[in-house]
Design a protein around this nucleic acid. Sequence first.
RNA 1: ACAGAAUACCGAUUGGUCGUAUAUUAAAAUAUAAGGAAAGUCCGGGCAACACAGGGAAGGAUAGUCGUUAACGACGACCAGGUGUGAACCUAGGGAAAGUGCCACAGAAACUAUACCGCCAUUAAUUGGUAAGGGUGAAAAGAGUGGUUUAAGAGACUACAGCUACUUAUGGUGACAUUUGUAGGAGGUAAACCCUAUCCGUUGCAAGGAAGAUGAAUUUUUAUUUAUAAAAGAAGUUUCCCGCUUUAUUAUUCAUCGUUUAAUCCGCUUGAGUUUGUAAGCAAUUACAGACCUAGAUAGAUGACCAAUGUCCUUAUCUGUAAAAAGAUUAGGAUACAGAACCCGGCUUAUAGGUAUUCUGUUAUU
RNA 2: GGCGCCUUGGCGGAGUGGUUACGCAGAGGUCUGCAAAACCUUUUACACCGGUUCAAUUCCGGUAGGCGCCU
Length: 122
Amino acid sequence: MIAKKYRFHGQKSLNETYKRGITLYEKDFSIKSLTKTRQQIPRFAVVVSKKVSKKAVIRNKIRRKIYEIIRTNLNIIKENQNLIITVFKEDVLNIEHKKLNKKITNLIKKINNQEDKTNKTI
RNA sequence: ACAGAAUACCGAUUGGUCGUAUAUUAAAAUAUAAGGAAAGUCCGGGCAACACAGGGAAGGAUAGUCGUUAACGACGACCAGGUGUGAACCUAGGGAAAGUGCCACAGAAACUAUACCGCCAUUAAUUGGUAAGGGUGAAAAGAGUGGUUUAAGAGACUACAGCUACUUAUGGUGACAUUUGUAGGAGGUAAACCCUAUCCGUUGCAAGGAAGAUGAAUUUUUAUUUAUAAAAGAAGUUUCCCGCUUUAUUAUUCAUCGUUUAAUCCGCUUGAGUUUGUAAGCAAUUACAGACCUAGAUAGAUGACCAAUGUCCUUAUCUGUAAAAAGAUUAGGAUACAGAACCCGGCUUAUAGGUAUUCUGUUAUU
RNA sequence: GGCGCCUUGGCGGAGUGGUUACGCAGAGGUCUGCAAAACCUUUUACACCGGUUCAAUUCCGGUAGGCGCCU
């Protein structure tokens, strides 16, 4: 898991990223990001709804795997970035660790490039 | 050996790298960290608020007996009925002789029956007797078998067996069992309404409490008196009525703003706790003594990756044997169900694979 | 986390202890020069598993799926 200071606290900050952030889609999951000038520590959230799977064990495993990938690749991410990853399908569990790692890191890099082009910071 | 029954239990282990939460601490570091069902939320209790948990009506739950328990719709032992060759298992198992309702279709008739065919008597048609037999149906004058009686028949009468109500005696705390006598002769359904007995106040930790700023609102009448009393109204308590509480300016309610790296803190984990031993009891369980402290998250911790071992299954080879069983090696596969959210006692449902104890039936051998 | 409710053909939607109405949709036919409308015929259902009962979609218990409310 990831440390408590890297997590979101409360609903308003989450809603802000949902409204204003940029989104990119993969087959089984999507990424939203928003960079803020006031912030000093990046924040992450992984959302796995009950529609993905009814069992709490499977949902927890998916979250933990993705959090682990983020934790090991912290150097890619900007200091003032907010990231939300939402999972749509149960198949994420069956993907190998290395493949998932590649997919997610590539997506994050893409998003960072887009943000640099548009200069969308608040 | 095969096929079963019951009860109790385990449900992976070790190492490496990188991490998460809590506690201790200045920091580093150390310690601890998910189940038998944590699940479903089906019952019961603690705890909290409302009145200290009160009265009546309505409503709900349960239903053999005795016990266990904080309590229960749970559990234990026993009784009765049913199922099974048996070990055992199942049962919402009070009342239909308080009252009401329902019993489709078929059938003559579905409940104080009054006869469709049949049998007998009598006739021109018919009418009368009869509940033995047939047919319908889930269920049919509902006490079976043998005999007597008769026009034909029938508890109409009798012998034996059996049922219901009351009753005698013995055993048992009791349900009840065995037993004595008298009387009786028309069904089912209460998981239909209902009656009887017992129990239940309502809401649920998102309960409840603490932590900002500004503004607005907080009634009327009477009496004495100039701040008290009484009455009405209002608000709260809710399935309804009664009753109760408040009528406050350091308070309550509403609105707006602020806080977003405090959307926080308390409640929150020492408890009907875990474990060892002894004693009581058939058992559920209880008593006493010793030792121990063992998760506490809140966009929600308890993990990710890698390696080895164990267990089980399958294939092949070897050993082994009359044939099996069993053992060794090689290769491949599987390793379940499932994630604390205030806390306990049960129930129900899901679960790869495995272990132990007691018992039953069949076959074979001694 | 807690509390409550629902499930009937392809879709909507009545019903109740005795084998399920109706409307729309689908298929075929009548009518028409051809269509529409109208009329006639027809296909497809009580979420699943147990219990009570002679008989259950209905009554009772459990399971599954779906929905709502409480900060």
